[in-house]
Design a protein around this nucleic acid. Structure first.
Length: 347
DNA sequence: AACGCGGGGAG
DNA sequence: CTCCCAGCGTT
């Protein structure tokens, strides 16, 4: 067993809080507590848990309650669909599973209001299935332990966290391990001012070793979407295409893209601007599936118009001029990442 | 992939 | 005051 796992289990056995739902491994009680604790702090949820257990001691009592009384008991907790799904799930357990909670992660997932986190929590705590939980605490502990800067709100960060938990989880007591990681996140490895001196895995913690604990976990956050309507001139000469280096100011500083035209948004304006810019008569001939494909492949939505000069302009024989109109709704930070390789491909 | 759900705490 | 939290269902 990993030293990290061992230290966590020993620490948990000694320091875990005495919470009412930890007094048994009855799946009904584990399930009820996990639903209540979704998006809810322990000190707010505890009183609700006790009232629910008192009003509905078994899953049968909850299944035959009317929705009104369940909602009344839930009053003040928020996210009321949890309460409605709670009753529906209880009815599913009674009707589809003969009153016995399903014992596997996959079957637990079929219950209303039970998603990947809750199914893993119940399966591991009540049925010893070695499936890792991933919640906010786990994201924090794992990203710091491994000094991972993968964004936890993106698929890459979720995948990494699951893999690391899978690596560390012991098959003999997965429930205690899952709870240990979450408890550590709640009590020691806190979002701000973590108590690293009290941490049982400080020695293994790569963030602590690099003194970057306060920078983790990393979140990509909501990307602000900015619409940009850009018209490019693409000047192609034989097997070469003209790109320009953007200035050091504004977006895409120092990156390559095509020469930008500043004309109005309709095609006629585009035509006139291009004609005066390049000093020759021009006309639209077709939409270019090639460039549309090039851009959409890179997840930039774009309209592409191809202009063909009647006479080949400035550069001379074998030169083709193309105007490319790109209306993008890509988050600016992402577009920056994509512009450089796009230009590099064409250079 | 993005949004809505809600009360509570932080800034 | 506004912003953010964090699992789940829906679209």
């Amino acid at each position: 067993m990993e030293k990290t796992t061992e230290n966590l289990l020993i620490w948990y056995a000694k320091h875990k809080r005495n919470l009412p739902w930890r007094e048994s491994i009855n799946p009904y009680q584990i399930w009820l507590s996990e639903i209540i604790l979704q998006q809810t702090r322990v000190d707010q949820g505890t009183a609700y848990y006790l009232r629910f257990i008192s009003a509905f001691p078994t899953v049968f009592d909850l299944a035959k309650a009317d929705e009104e009384s369940v909602l009344k008991l839930w009053q003040g907790l928020g996210y009321y669909s949890r309460a409605r799904n709670l009753r529906l799930a209880a009815q599913m357990v009674v009707e589809k599973f003969n009153g016995q909670f399903p014992t596997s992660y996959d079957l637990l997932l079929t219950l209303k209001g039970v998603g990947p986190y809750t199914a893993a929590a119940i399966a591991s705590i009540a049925f010893n299935e070695p499936v890792p939980v991933v919640d906010g605490n786990v994201f924090r502990v794992i990203s710091r332990l491994m000094a991972s800067d993968l964004p936890i709100d993106r698929p890459s960060g979720l995948k990494f966290t699951r893999e690391q938990m899978l690596r560390l989880i012991p098959s003999n007591e997965p429930g205690n391990f899952n709870q240990a990681v979450m408890e550590l996140g709640a009590m020691v490895c806190k979002p701000v001012n973590p108590d690293c001196n009290a941490c049982p895995i400080q020695t293994q913690c790569l963030a602590h070793a690099s003194k970057i604990t306060s920078n983790l976990p990393v979140k990509a956050g909501k990307q602000k979407v900015t619409a940009l309507n850009i018209r490019y001139a693409m000047v192609i000469f034989k097997d070469q295409i003209m790109v320009r280096l953007r200035s050091e100011k504004g977006i895409w500083q120092g990156l390559y893209d095509f020469p930008e035209l500043t004309f109005e948004h309709d095609e006629i304006g585009c035509l006139h601007e291009a004609e005066s810019l390049f000093g020759t008569k021009m006309t639209f001939v077709k939409r270019s599936s090639t460039f549309t494909h090039l851009l959409s492949h890179r997840r930039i939505s774009a309209d592409v118009f191809v202009l063909q000069a009647e006479q080949l302009p400035i550069i001379g024989k074998d030169c083709q001029l193309i105007a490319l109109s790109a209306l993008t709704t890509v988050p600016v930070p992402r577009l920056v990442e994509k512009m450089l390789p796009l230009a590099e491909n064409l250079i």
